[in-house]
Design a binder for these strands. Structure first.
Lengths: 203, 203
DNA sequence: CATATATCGGAACGATTGTTCCGATATGAT
DNA sequence: ATCATATCGGAACAATCGTTCCGATATATG
């Protein structure tokens, strides 16, 4: 039997851990302490797998960070899409999203904030790959807001006649602001004020 | 002559560098690469003074970071106070501040953003001292917005009758959002949209 | 059961981390 | 000019950094 064929026929030891489960732990570590603040030792300790398994499975630190950010992005935007897909009135959809984000931020005693925003602030300016991920995600989120707002304008629910693109940019900027504010505050009243006034722009 | 007296009478070698000038360089280094991203070697290279002079003059890395953040904060809020003190109409004052911040962000090709926001995101959640500086500064800025907005409401220039405190929180949150957005974008149109709509809340 | 091979734990690597220390240098007051 | 002392450059420190490597272990297939 030729050697190459053997490679695919002969199986070996299976991983002792669930790859996605461990990646999720990596997300939480990077999310909590940032890229530069998280050492490989922190990861070895926190993930519960050995150094070699870590490198064999996820590559080096930077590659793991990218994978963690990708994982976070897909689950996070998944939640948003879920809210959008529930065919509520446009303004109610926006409100639900803002309140979902707000409550997520407020419920975290560790003040992790948003992993994407953390990466945008700490890493993006020095890392082309991370920057592109951020830009792509931002465009995607902005577009999602745009579509909801546009729909609201078409149905007459949103009376503000200004460019839906501008309204989407404004709304998303409000979200980013809250994700920073949450880093040093957990005063719900502050977020309620922000959401109420941001929503009022859509009237 | 008693020993203590000598301490004040006998002078020794003077510093070869200007203390504030070098601190300013430290501000720019930490601002650009963050706390964890900036090594003492980076600082030695960037400040142009020796390791020992660095420690003798500014203390350890964390102490230097605090001093750099304090320095940034005082000059940054100084600029804002300057705009506020020019007794323009309230809404014009807010607009000037937002546009001043926007242009500052857009003119920086290195996407440093705002040093305070960077520290809030990267450091504040794990550093009580930095967190307190951020909270204190945020309160100060929010109060400044509050006073201008309150004045605008009293003169009838700002017709929105909602709580001036809420309006101040909202406005400041918009600023924080822009300071994140600037990390991965330099599209002026985005900032113009955000400012225009944030301002419209004050109508 | 035997075999091949991927996974694992842990030692080890050189580089870099933040910090300390020391001898040489420079300087203001006497 | 002398003196006391703060400043300076650079060597050196232990600790940690990210990464590599190797022998032992475990397991799906033949």
């Amino acid at each position: 039997m030729p050697y190459i064929a053997k490679l695919f026929l002969v199986m070996a030891r299976t991983k002792d851990f669930d790859e996605n489960e461990v990646l999720n732990k990596a997300v939480n570590l990077f999310w909590l302490k940032g890229y530069n603040g998280t050492s490989m030792q922190d990861l070895v300790d926190g993930l519960g797998i050995s150094r070699s398994s870590l490198y064999d499975t996820y590559g080096d630190k930077h590659t793991l960070f990218i994978k963690a950010l990708e994982s976070y992005q897909s689950t996070a935007s998944g939640k948003i899409c879920q809210i959008i897909s529930s065919v509520l009135p446009a303004k109610e959809t926006i409100k639900q999203i803002l309140e979902y984000i707000s409550s997520g931020l407020l419920n975290d005693q560790t003040h992790k904030g948003c992993f994407m925003v953390n990466a945008e602030v700490e890493v993006a300016p020095h890392d082309r790959q991370v920057n592109e991920m951020i830009c792509q995600n931002d465009q995607q989120v902005e577009d999602a807001f745009y579509l909801v707002i546009k729909k609201g304008q078409d149905t007459g629910e949103i009376t503000n006649p200004q460019d839906a693109r501008a309204l989407a940019r404004f709304t998303f900027n409000t979200v980013k602001g809250m994700r920073v504010t949450a880093k040093s505050t957990n005063d719900k009243a502050v977020f309620d004020d922000i959401i109420k006034l941001a929503m009022s722009v859509l009237d």
